[in-house]
């Protein structure tokens, strides 16, 4: 198959032989430095990158589908607290189900279909060999707790926010692939409190603006943003709960000759949707991991990520948990 030799010999042709995990990767940087901003844009807008493009689907399904959903189930088995539904969020959960399944069927007609008559629904998902009839609003008609069920069909982590008292409240979620935070701890918080640990954004009014924007969304409106950090290994579960299991990798990777294969750029494509019936805000987080070795196969990405990592202010690097290895990573990328 493709070898590095070929990539280097004819870089112009590289794009044609790059694997999908690279061509479809949502590379998040458009400049050589990165700062927080209220980076919200309409959903479904196509984005082209130096390696290909992404963004035309709300629910992205890729070759990791079954494996990631298997991992989600295993995480939940070990730690059921990754699912949190405050009682008043039941209608919002159902709203998310009856909103997302038809979208997923529309976007993936070759493997999925959804039919609905009144409250009677039929959901078929050939990737799971699933043919399910259920009644919207009736928990017992699903094979699992409703949000667990939704989380078994889509790769995204899910959060639901209630709007009241002039604020948004994170009152339900199914989050197994968190980038160093804990849903079990955060559930029940206001949007501003959720973002308490993030540096800079409060002084810069970024989060208050985002909340205002979200509170003004009308039913059915869909937006998205990206967020990024780095992870050692293809580890999706970097929740605060399991921090002791993966924390040491952050120091160990610095001197590891395998750093380019072990270290991954972790990009979250986050969707923000006002649900039509409950009026809740649905927040979806789809996590993509790509190793530095893969990133380096796209010369523009190699250089830009190298520069971003070198330039990132210490408080942001510290918050993202990349301080120990970002210099090593940047040096490797820029040595190209």
């Amino acid at each position: 198959m493709s070898t590095n030799l070929i990539d280097h010999a004819i870089p112009q042709e590289a794009a044609t032989i790059l694997p999908e995990r690279i061509t479809r990767f949502p590379f998040p940087f458009s400049a050589d430095s990165y700062r927080y901003s209220t980076n919200i844009e309409p959903a479904l807008k196509p984005v082209s990158t130096e390696a290909g493009g992404w963004g035309t689907r709300l629910l992205d399904i890729d070759e990791h589908y079954l494996q990631e959903l298997g991992e989600r189930a295993a995480v939940l088995q070990r730690d059921p607290s990754r699912l949190q539904v405050l009682p008043h969020m039941r209608p919002a959960v159902w709203d998310a189900i009856t909103t997302l399944l038809p979208i997923m069927a529309d976007e993936h007609p070759e493997t999925m279909s959804f039919e609905r008559k009144g409250d009677s629904c039929r959901w078929q998902n050939r990737l799971h060999n699933l043919d399910l009839e259920f009644t919207a609003g009736v928990d017992a008609s699903l094979p699992a707790e409703p949000l667990l069920f939704l989380g078994s069909q889509i790769q995204d982590d899910i959060a639901l926010l209630d709007q009241r008292e002039n604020a948004l409240w994170l009152d339900a979620g199914l989050v197994t692939f968190a980038a160093d935070w804990s849903l079990g701890f955060d559930v029940g918080m206001k949007f501003l409190e959720v973002h308490g640990p993030v540096p800079r954004v409060h002084d810069e009014q970024i989060i208050t603006r985002a909340q205002q924007f979200l509170m003004n969304l009308q039913p059915g409106e869909k937006y998205r943003r990206t967020n990024w950090t780095m992870t050692v290994g293809r580890r999706l579960d970097t929740s605060t709960e399991t921090y002791p299991e993966w924390a040491q990798d952050r120091s160990a990777v610095v001197t590891d000759p395998a750093l380019p294969d072990r270290l991954h750029l972790r990009v979250e494509v986050q969707h923000l949707i006002r649900l039509p019936h409950s009026g809740a805000i649905l927040f979806l987080v789809r996590t993509h991991l790509l190793s530095l070795a893969d990133i380096a196969r796209v010369p523009a990405w190699r250089e830009r990520l190298g520069r971003v990592l070198a330039e990132l202010p210490p408080d942001m690097a510290g918050y993202k948990g990349i301080s120990r290895y970002r210099e090593a990573a940047s040096a490797w990328l820029l040595a190209g």
Partner: peptide, 28 residues
């Protein structure tokens, strides 16, 4: 018995601050 680093992150529902393993990143 883990030594916890106590953060400013506060949950109104649990009425508690977040604590997480303090020295987990240091080499064993």
């Amino acid at each position: 018995a883990t030594v916890l680093s106590v953060s400013e992150h506060f949950s109104r529902r649990l009425a508690a601050h977040l604590g997480y393993a303090a020295h987990a990143e240091e080499a064993a």
